[in-house]
Design a protein around this nucleic acid. Structure first.
Length: 613
RNA sequence: GGCCCAUUGGUGAAAUGGUUAACACAUCGCCCUCUCAAGGCGACAUUCAUGGGUUCAAAUCCCAUAUGGGUCACCA
């Protein structure tokens, strides 16, 4: 290509045409040249040297070359904004190198579920760990499934999980609107542009005609789709189109694909690695007859204009990547990086299937809310699914949290992970065990406020006491792990409250022969002293146990059990059972220390009463 | 059917051609211990879906088969 006084000169060497093209910079758009007569040439700056090919094949014999600009104006007479206008409205973001702009783009079809939540966790984590931007965009182009308040519900759930959303439909941002149904004008302008460069055309085929094509293809065992010789509207002349438009025939905008199914494109997916797929040669629908685009076109336009750098989405889109890349190329835009995520799966009998909002109760966000499985625990679980080395790191760094870990795309699973609620619960237990008593108290109150008003009031009225109870065997090197969710708290500590403790608490006990109230009365009247430290406390119990012929030494007892009524742990069991109504509880010394003399006496009487029934 | 992807213990998985196949959950055993939990120690894949091939060396690369999943819309 030579430049003569602001005029570009290019040698054409196409199949049937040779010659020169002269054009100025105004006629240059991206790598296309729009010529005055409506032809479009694309500059291929690839190998070997700048070369020009006439796109769209050769003109039909005897007919004019289609004037695409004219066609664009015919189809979109009222669209006056150009794609350049939009480029200016939504300029490149001013972010530092390596910052990721990512988005979560759900349809407003209802509440979030674990699958969704996991899918949105990924862009949230990657964008924020690179000081990037996380966008929520609502894809409501399929109005059949959309529900009222869909957007609000999604935002509500995301907020409940403390996702930081930088731009969304309700709070806005500089790259909106963030709801696809409000972007119709933008799509039209971009559709018009594609028509004007000859990469899109109107199709007037009815549903019946499309079905017929499919039938023929099925019969001939040909590939199904609107492509090549089956794409009959591709070759409509301007006059034919004009006539149909005049007749108000409905039409859709289709991509004029120039792909070759027998060639493969190679692209790199951040998660799955290098993938080879046949090129797209199907003239997919870019814009529906209602003026709204299906997913693919909207994806390209929106993600380009929102300056998204990384597209994370379900891996079911992988097979349409060649199609998406063809659109990116048609515009001459730089395609974003793709990261295709394997969805969360569930095992049902022998088969593995996608976790389903409808079939699996544990998929619903409400399932976790009701049980009080904290949002932090769910996110920790997601993090282990995301990068399995996270868990080891987390266990080694108890004081750090998710934000301190550097996640990587290439460590993500290429096959779908099985959603394992047991594992989640185990992670949740670890999470709870690391909580400070006062934090646990606050968070528990928050939960109880909506799910258990009575218990809420009780805990609220006894703040200091409750925190002390929660602090038993907590904030120590090896904390207890018996709380997996907020609803467990009541089970674990209710016996510490006289208001909740009654004779029924003994009902499930198996009464052993050494369960005698005299022993208890003797112990609390003559031996127990609240001021003792733990060692003294236990030494005194050992001493005391001898009096009733219980062996003070476990090992000794194991050797000669017949000599004794029981051993010192049986004495402890007796005290524990009386005080708590159960054989298993946290540290007995701590429990006794917290309970008042009155409540211990009350329980001795209750226990006595129970034994006599 | 075409195309694409996957397959490592009961489960989630690591290992990127190089000694005995990490780690975690679950299970079982022992220890510690006033019970339980926690914790500590140990057991649990003679082998990475199967069969071939390449290589001094294969879970890892190649080919075939099997199984599972995805996708082929004016759905996303």
């Amino acid at each position: 290509m030579k430049i003569i006084k602001n005029l570009f000169v290019i040698k054409i060497n196409a199949t049937k045409l040779t010659g020169c093209i002269y054009f100025n910079s105004k006629m240059l758009y991206n790598n296309y040249v729009l010529l005055p007569h409506g032809q479009v040439v694309r500059l291929w700056t690839l190998t070997p040297a700048p070369e020009v090919r006439i796109l769209l094949g050769q003109p039909k014999k005897g007919s004019e070359i289609m004037d695409y600009k004219k066609l664009a104006d015919l189809l979109y007479p009222n669209v006056d904004k150009t794609i350049e206008d939009y480029e200016k409205m939504y300029p490149e973001r001013n972010l530092s190198e390596g910052s990721i702009v990512a988005r979560f783009a759900p349809s407003p079809t209802g509440r979030m579920h674990m699958g969704n939540l996991f899918a949105s966790f990924i862009p949230e984590v990657f964008s924020h760990q690179t000081n990037g931007v996380f966008i929520l965009r609502i894809e409501d182009t399929d109005d059949k499934r959309a529900i009222e308040n869909g957007t609000e519900l999604i935002l509500e759930d995301l907020k409940a999980y403390k996702y930081r959303i930088d731009e969304d439909p309700i709070n806005g941002g500089n790259y909106g609107p963030y709801i696809q149904s409000q972007r119709k004008d933008i799509y039209s302008a971009f559709g018009k542009y594609l028509v004007s460069i000859g990469r899109a055309y109107p199709c007037f085929c009815s549903e019946d005609e499309i079905n017929k094509i499919r039938e023929i293809q099925t019969e001939k065992k040909d590939r199904i789709g609107y492509y090549g010789k089956y794409a009959k509207c591709r070759n409509l002349s301007y006059e034919e189109i004009e006539q149909k438009i005049k007749n108000n025939e409905p039409w859709v905008l289709r991509l004029k694909s120039n792909g070759d199914f027998n060639k493969k494109i190679i692209f790199k997916d951040l998660i799955k690695g290098t993938i080879e797929i046949p090129e797209n040669d199907i003239d997919h629908v870019l814009i529906k007859s209602d003026g709204i685009p299906p997913y693919a076109f909207a994806h390209v336009v929106d993600d380009h204009l929102m300056r998204v750098t990384h597209v994370t989405r379900d891996d079911s889109y992988i097979s349409s990547v060649p199609y998406h890349l063809e659109i990116w190329n048609a515009f001459g835009f730089k395609a974003p990086k793709y990261a295709h995520i394997s969805p969360l799966n569930k095992k049902e009998g022998e088969t593995v299937r996608k976790l389903s909002k409808r079939k699996d109760p544990e998929a619903a966000v409400s399932f976790y809310n009701e049980r009080g499985i904290p949002e932090e625990a769910v996110k920790l679980y997601f993090a282990t699914l995301l990068n399995s080395n996270f868990e080891e790191w987390y266990n080694q760094n108890p004081s750090l949290n998710i934000n301190d870990f550097r996640f990587e795309f290439n460590k993500m699973s290429t096959s779908g992970s099985l959603f394992d609620i047991e594992k989640l619960i185990s992670i949740s237990k670890t999470y709870f065990s690391r909580l400070k008593a006062s934090d646990l108290y606050d968070k528990t109150l928050e939960y109880l406020n909506t799910y258990d008003k009575d218990f809420y009031t009780l805990l609220k009225d006894n703040k200091e006491y409750t925190i002390n109870v929660l602090n038993i065997e907590r904030e120590v090197p090896r904390p207890r792990k018996d709380i997996s969710c907020y609803s467990d708290v009541k089970k674990e500590i209710s016996f510490m409250f006289d208001e909740l403790f009654n004779i029924d608490d003994y009902k499930n006990l198996e009464i052993k022969k050494f369960y005698k109230s005299e022993i208890l009365e003797d112990y609390f009247e003559n031996v127990y002293n609240k001021e003792d430290d733990k060692q003294d406390w236990f030494n005194k119990i050992k001493e005391f146990s001898v009096k009733y012929n219980f062996c003070p030494d476990n090992k000794e007892y194991k050797l000669n059990p017949e000599k004794y009524l029981g051993n010192v742990s049986d004495i402890c069991e007796l005290i524990r059972v009386m005080v708590t109504g159960r054989t298993m509880s946290p540290d007995l010394y701590e429990i006794l220390k917290l309970l008042s003399k009155e409540s211990i006496n009350k329980r001795i009487n209750l226990f006595k009463e129970y034994l006599n029934i």
